[in-house]
Design a protein around this nucleic acid. Structure first.
Length: 322
DNA sequence: CATCAGGGCCCTG
DNA sequence: CAGGGCCCTGAT
């Protein structure tokens, strides 16, 4: 599908805001719906059923942030659509997050302070809808990164839409309805394994009305309950979604074994293969980062993975198993 | 070649 | 509440 019509609008995040570390997360596995270069991110999006090609460009700075957003579409978009899209992106990109309190509170923390200074203005990144994020969460389960990438790619090939805009090609996600007529065997043929059942059950739930926007307005406990009610979603996936999709900056209910190893090294400087008990990690997070546990760990985590981009971190390589 | 664990979850006992 | 099984893949 070739997208020829363009609209351009400006988005104004709350300062401080930093474009690159907010739009590129070195620890996220690569998917063919987006591409980042310094100052630019291409990203497809399906909104109100319409496939869009987005291009975000940094035209501001830390204290006077501005993002120029170009929107490619197959047919012209009316102003109401653009308005709704703007609101949705402001939410998903967390542009209204005011980091002032966080920065003040942890600016003097011996570990977090220098990291905040380095990445000031960074916020978590999620451009996906809840449904799209759930698919990713399912594909992450019990798989290496390489396998997750290949499962995601084959799903895009079969059910996504290839978009061409700005001289580039990216896949755009499908909708839950699109899988209504797909059988478990068809999905299994794509080598997603037992996850086929999860993907279908979740897609059916969304087709039947499971609604992201409604959930946004509910308290975290209700959101968690609703997520855990989805077949194939357990505490790990629910935790990622509550922090990444629903923006709960203090979400830290579940620490999985591989995370436990990395946290043990980062916060206690012990051999990751002899990790400290989860309860001890939880206690440390509560004491030091209470109220902002997810955001604090996000800063430390991203700092580590940016470092990994530039230098070899042997202990980490062993743990992330590409 | 065979075996096994992997960035979970469901189901059973 | 602990533990087996699940699809597949690549590492050993």
């Amino acid at each position: 599908m070739i997208l020829n019509h363009t609209h351009t609008i400006d988005l104004f995040p709350i300062a401080p805001y930093t474009f690159d570390v907010s739009f590129h997360k070195p620890d996220h596995f690569p998917t063919s719906d987006n591409h980042w270069e310094p100052g630019v991110r291409w990203q497809t999006m399906r909104w109100q059923g319409i496939p869009l090609g987005l291009k975000f460009e940094n035209v501001g700075n830390l204290y006077q942030p501005c993002i120029r957003l170009s929107i490619w579409s197959q047919t012209p978009l009316d102003p109401d659509f653009i308005k709704g899209l703007r609101q949705e992106l402001e939410y998903r990109l967390f542009l209204n997050l005011d980091l002032t309190v966080f920065n003040q509170r942890f600016g003097d923390d011996p570990q977090l302070g220098p990291i905040i200074a380095r990445w000031r203005g960074m916020r978590p990144l999620n451009v996906s809808s809840l449904y799209e994020y759930l698919i990713i969460a399912i594909l992450l389960q019990n798989a290496t990164v390489r396998r997750t990438v290949s499962m995601m790619q084959i799903m895009y090939k079969h059910y996504g839409t290839l978009l061409e805009y700005d001289g580039r090609q990216f896949y755009c996600s499908w909708e839950a309805n699109d899988l209504n007529t797909v059988t478990e065997d068809e999905l299994r043929a794509l080598k997603v394994g037992y996850r086929a059942k999860f993907i279908l059950r979740i897609s059916h739930a969304f087709s039947a009305g499971f609604d992201e926007i409604t959930l946004r307005g509910q308290p975290r406990s209700e959101q968690r309950k609703a997520l855990l009610g989805l077949y194939g979603v357990g505490p790990a996936s629910a935790g990622y979604i509550l922090s990444d999709v629903f923006h709960h900056l203090d979400e830290m209910d579940h620490i999985s074994p591989w995370e436990q190893k990395i946290y043990s090294k980062l916060f206690f400087d012990v051999d990751p293969e002899q990790p400290v008990p989860v309860e001890q990690l939880t206690e440390l997070f509560n004491q030091r980062f209470g109220g902002y546990r997810a955001l604090a760990v996000h800063y430390i985590w991203e700092d580590l993975f940016w470092k990994r981009k530039n230098e070899n971190i042997p202990w980490l390589e062993k743990l992330i198993r590409l």
